[in-house]
């Protein structure tokens, strides 16, 4: 396919060339970015949540305060404020740490008016590193921010789920002579998931829909590219002039997000059925009767 002069092409061929420009490739790559972000963030946020919930129910008071404080603070602060503030703050915190280690004899102040100035060796990534390293670094800052935010919500869900496990189950474990640790890992944790899953599945859906916030964090996600590509283009600056096509791009996004949430629902329903098996819940009982 020869795309060197699109003005002589028409119809299908024009479309084929148009949809394979470098810019469109960036759009396709950004779909991967979003999926990658979700696949890393979900387990990390779950781990944060598990840690937060375990800490919150700890009998060691300072640890419990830490867990409860984490949940309360993140849940209380508006997400957007958190996303805008946190990424710049995290970045500056890392650079400040590196600055202390690498440039101990630096004599200028780090805050100069509005400017945040650390020595060149402390920049993260270094000013000399290639653009992809800056992008990867930004991506991991985003993963960390998303994980901290969604981890707090997950912690609250898991904290509730741990409390929802019937007391009789724990008592039985104690009667068998299990230690607190054994009870936690062998009885409580395997049984809590069925109570946690409805809440966690909500979180997953919200997380999918929160990915456009990525652009706030400086990552060029699918919504950014859809907006950029869909905007009207004049012939002076592109080989593929067109009017305002944002509607079509956003329609494609709509389909993407809808089908993604649909697939998630199907998978989550299956996990739920699996977790319900043998549980002392109404659904577990119904499942048992149906199998008889």
């Amino acid at each position: 396919m020869d795309c060197t002069d699109p003005s002589i092409l028409s119809g299908f061929n024009w479309m084929l060339c148009y949809l394979t420009t470098g810019k469109h490739m960036a759009l396709y790559v950004s779909v991967g970015t979003v999926l990658l972000l979700l696949s890393i963030t979900a387990p990390v946020a779950l781990a944060f949540g598990f840690g937060g919930a375990s800490a919150a129910r700890s009998r060691f008071l300072p640890l419990s305060w830490l867990g409860k404080g984490y949940i309360a603070i993140v849940r209380g602060v508006p997400d957007i404020a958190f996303f805008l503030f946190f990424v710049i703050a995290l970045d500056q915190a890392f650079e400040w740490l590196r600055h202390q280690v690498k440039c101990p004899d630096w004599d200028e102040p780090i805050r100069q008016g509005n400017d945040f100035v650390v020595c060149a060796a402390a920049k993260l990534p270094l000013g000399t590193s290639p653009q992809w390293m800056h992008e990867t670094y930004g991506f991991f800052l985003a993963v960390l921010t998303f994980s901290i935010v969604f981890g707090a919500f997950a912690a609250n869900v898991l904290y509730g789920a741990m409390k929802a496990v019937p007391r009789a189950q724990i008592e039985t474990a104690e009667a068998y002579g299990m230690s607190r640790r054994q009870t936690f890992w062998r009885i409580l944790v395997p049984q809590m998931w069925v109570y946690a899953l409805p809440g966690l599945s909500n979180l997953w859906m919200v997380l999918i829909k929160a990915t456009p916030l990525l652009f706030l964090l400086g990552i060029e996600d699918i919504v950014y590219w859809a907006r950029e590509l869909g905007g009207a283009k004049t012939a002076r600056f592109t080989d593929y002039p067109h009017g305002d096509w944002r509607m079509w791009y956003f329609l494609a996004l709509l389909i993407f997000y809808l089908s993604f949430t649909k697939v998630s629902e199907v998978v989550l329903d299956r996990i739920m059925a699996r977790l319900t098996k043998g549980q002392a819940t109404a659904a577990g009982e119904a499942q048992r009767k149906a199998a008889v």
Binding site: L97, A120, A121, A122, P125, L126, G127, T128
Partner: peptide, 21 residues
């Protein structure tokens, strides 16, 4: 993460001409 970031940077910290972004 912070420790990783600090150590990862050390590898690249050799003298370079400054790149202006």
């Amino acid at each position: 993460t912070a420790a990783l970031a600090v150590s990862a940077g050390a590898v690249f910290a050799e003298g370079h001409a400054k790149t202006v972004r």
